[in-house]
Design a binder for these strands. Structure first.
Length: 238
DNA sequence: GTGTTCAGCTTTAGGCTCGC
DNA sequence: GCGAGCCTAAAGCTGAACAC
C-alpha cells in the first residue's frame, strides 16, 4: 500500500489516473490473496517509480527491477506477470479447496505446507482403509466359496439318501407282492413274548425285537411314510 | 514498547517445454 | 516461431514470536 503520510511521495508523480489501479487490501484488486498482506507496499520514491512504469506498460517494467509491481485485475491475455498471478490464484484456490475438504466445517488452514501434510495423512489413511476393505472382501468371498461347496455336498448326500430310500421302497413292494412267500411268524419264545408286553421276569424291560428281515416302518401310517412332498415340506438347508 | 528474527507468502523475471 | 503454462531463484512484505 502506498503510504500517504509521505509528503514527498505524491510530489514526484501524478497518480491521479493511476490511483485506482494501485492495489490495496480493500481496493480494486479482488483476486484471491493467500495472506492478508497488501500486495504492494513501496516505501520509497524509487519503488513508486518502478510501479509507475509497470502500470503504464502493463508489466513491461524496466528490467533490473526487483520490486513488486502492482497487482491489478488481469486477464489471461495480458502480461506474463498477470498470467503468473492468475496461475498463483488458481493454485491458492485449490489449496483453499483442499483445506476445506480436509477439515469440513472448520475454517481451512492457511499454511500451504500444513495443508499438504494433512492431505498426505488423509490419503494414507484412506489407502489403509481401502486395503482393509479389500482384505475383508477377499475373506468373505472365500467364505462364500466354502459355503457353496458345503451346500453342494449336502445336496449330493440328499440325492444319495433319496435314491437309497427309493431302492428300499422298491424292495418292500416286491416283498409285499409275494405274501405267501413270507414265512409265518416264528414262535416267539415265552420270554420274548412276555417282554413284548412289558412283563419280563422280574419286571425288567427288555428290548423288543421285530420280525427279522421286515422293516418295521411299514406299519407306520401312510402319511408319515409319504416322501413325495419332501422337497416342499423339508427343503435343503444349504 | 521496541527491535530482531523467522516463517510463509507474493511478486518478478528468466528459462524451459509443449502445442499450434 | 510464437504464445501459454510451468518452474525456480531472488527480492520483498507481513505477522508472530522472542529478547531486551
Amino acid at each position: 500500500m502506498v503510504p500517504p503520510e509521505n509528503p514527498s511521495y505524491w510530489s514526484h508523480f501524478d497518480y491521479s489516473t493511476l490511483i485506482d489501479d494501485i492495489p490495496v487490501p480493500d481496493g480494486p484488486y479482488t483476486g484471491f490473496s493467500w495472506s492478508t498482506q497488501p500486495t504492494n507496499a513501496p516505501s520509497t520514491a524509487v519503488n513508486v517509480e518502478i510501479d509507475n512504469s509497470f502500470g503504464d506498460l502493463d508489466g513491461l517494467a524496466e528490467s533490473g527491477s526487483k520490486k513488486r509491481g502492482r497487482s491489478e485485475s488481469c486477464n489471461p491475455s495480458s502480461s506474463k506477470a498477470c498470467r503468473e498471478k492468475l496461475r498463483r490464484d488458481r493454485l491458492n484456490d485449490k489449496f483453499m479447496e483442499l483445506g476445506a475438504i480436509l477439515e469440513p466445517g472448520r475454517p481451512p488452514k492457511t499454511d500451504k505446507s500444513a495443508i499438504l501434510v494433512d492431505a498426505v495423512r488423509m490419503v494414507t489413511q484412506l489407502q489403509d482403509e481401502a486395503q482393509k476393505m479389500k482384505d475383508s472382501n477377499s475373506s468373505l468371498q472365500e467364505r462364500i466359496k466354502e459355503l457353496k461347496a458345503e451346500k453342494n455336498e449336502l445336496r449330493e448326500e440328499k440325492q444319495r439318501l433319496k435314491a437309497e430310500k427309493e431302492k428300499l421302497e422298491q424292495q418292500l413292494k416286491t416283498m409285499n407282492a409275494q405274501p405267501s412267500f413270507m414265512p409265518p411268524a416264528p414262535a416267539i419264545p415265552a420270554a420274548f413274548a412276555a417282554a413284548a408286553q412289558g412283563q419280563a421276569p422280574g419286571n425288567k424291560l427288555v428290548p423288543f425285537f421285530g420280525y427279522p428281515g421286515v422293516a418295521m416302518w411299514q406299519f407306520m401310517p401312510p402319511a408319515a411314510v409319504d416322501t413325495s412332498q419332501d422337497h416342499v415340506l423339508r427343503p435343503p438347508v444349504a
